[in-house]
Computed example of a mutant assay.
Amino acid sequence: MIRVGIVGISGYTGLELVKMIVAHPYFELSYAGASSSGVLSENFSSLKGVIDIEIKKADADEIKSKCDLVFLALPHTEGMKLASMLRGSGVKIVDLSADYRVSQANYEKNYCPHLDPKGLEDAVYGLVEINRNKIKNANLIANPGCYPTCSLLGLLPFANMLKSDVMIDAKSGLSGAGKGLKSSSHFISVNENMNAYSPLTHRHSDEISEHLNLNLSQKIDVMFVPHLIPLSRGMLVSSYGFLNDEFKDIDPLEILKEFYKDERFIRIRREPVSIKDVAGTHFCDIYAMNHNGKIWINSSIDNLLRGASSQAIANANLIMGIDESTALPIIGNSI
């Protein structure tokens, strides 16, 4: 068995990681860390009688002695503090924060001075369909954000066909805001409501732009507007752009099918996608249409799973030499 730790286990993504690790034939939860101590089932009553483990205040030396692999489900800026102490110890790291996802310049533009520039250079961006071979040989994985995952998986097949501007209209369920209490996520604020936040300035704009433009000769300007919708989980993204003249007659569904022909967890739809079809699963569903050279790309994921925890498990499987699909959820709650 591979000894696995989760630091930041008391959050929503921590719970999803626990659920998959319990079902995993090769992973064993050997360490649970959080900002305060306690017992796992006291944080999540659904785990009573299923799994219980003492939650400890995170300690790098104890992680090194008890874990072969650790998931860091910590707030941004906290992940790199612990990762910098674990790097080089032999413990494989999957970091779910933003701390290793983008260049130092983009990170410091959106967050704070980076504390581990060398780790930033060594980290591999964990978008599996694009970086699978690099992930297999990595020791530190930067698990992508939920909005970038859903947006990039839709856009990347068309990246070299697009003109210079792309507009992304994204909508996420409330769990993306985390467990912390804030007035904007109170039931009375979100019920029967929808609102945009950080339009055109959201920090995920730079993550999407950086990884979309990574290998392009002509840079694409990304305009990104996220919205909060009154759902527990799920994400729907609509991306709009113009095709270059030589691609104005393409069949976008054929492009998607070819690009993702060997990908089990990408489903190409023949109609606009639905959040209910992916909620509770690792799938990303994608649809696209071309109207006189104008393209609309519609993608959907579960923000807690494909946008965080199940993507982290897929990355962990790869870096530990296990079949990528092991323990990934494939049937959700569609009723």
Rank of each mutant, 00 (worst) to 15 (best):
E62R: 08
F265P: 07
D206S: 14
S183L: 13
D206M: 05
A60G: 13
I322Q: 06
L86V: 02
M223H: 15
P226R: 04
N133V: 08
D59Y: 00
D251Q: 03
K294R: 09
A58D: 10
L153S: 09
D99C: 06
L82I: 12
F158L: 11
L328I: 09
A279P: 02
V18H: 01
L96C: 11
I335L: 14
T326S: 15
F71I: 00
S184Y: 15
A123E: 02
P113A: 11
I220P: 01
M194E: 14
C284V: 07
Y100T: 00
M235F: 09
D95F: 01
T149E: 11
H291G: 14
P272A: 07
F265L: 11
E28W: 01
K248R: 09
L47H: 04
I268K: 04
S151W: 10
P230H: 07
M167Q: 07
V166C: 10
F283K: 03
I335Q: 14
F247D: 05
S36Y: 10
K19Y: 11
G11M: 00
I250N: 02
V7M: 06
G293V: 07
K276L: 05
K182Y: 13
V39S: 15
N160F: 12
M85K: 10
A32K: 01
V124H: 01
D61C: 04
E324K: 11
N110D: 14
I53R: 12
C67P: 13
A316G: 15
L236Y: 05
S299C: 06
N160W: 08
P157N: 08
H282N: 09
A98V: 14
M80D: 08
F44L: 11
N193I: 08
R267F: 06
H291F: 15
V91P: 03
V70Q: 08
L243G: 02
L69H: 07
D122R: 04
I55S: 00
M289D: 15
R264V: 13
G90S: 05
I266D: 11
K57G: 15
S97H: 01
E324N: 12
A98P: 07
M235N: 09
E324P: 08
A314M: 07
G234C: 14
R269C: 15
H204A: 15
E324W: 08
L228K: 08
R233I: 04
A23W: 03
N106R: 05
L115F: 01
G307R: 05
K64A: 07
M85W: 00
V7E: 01
T13K: 00
M320D: 12
P25C: 04
L236W: 05
V190M: 14
Y147V: 14
W296N: 15
L86A: 03
L256D: 05
L181S: 13
L236M: 06
M80H: 07
K261E: 10
H76F: 04
H204F: 14
S36A: 10
I208W: 06
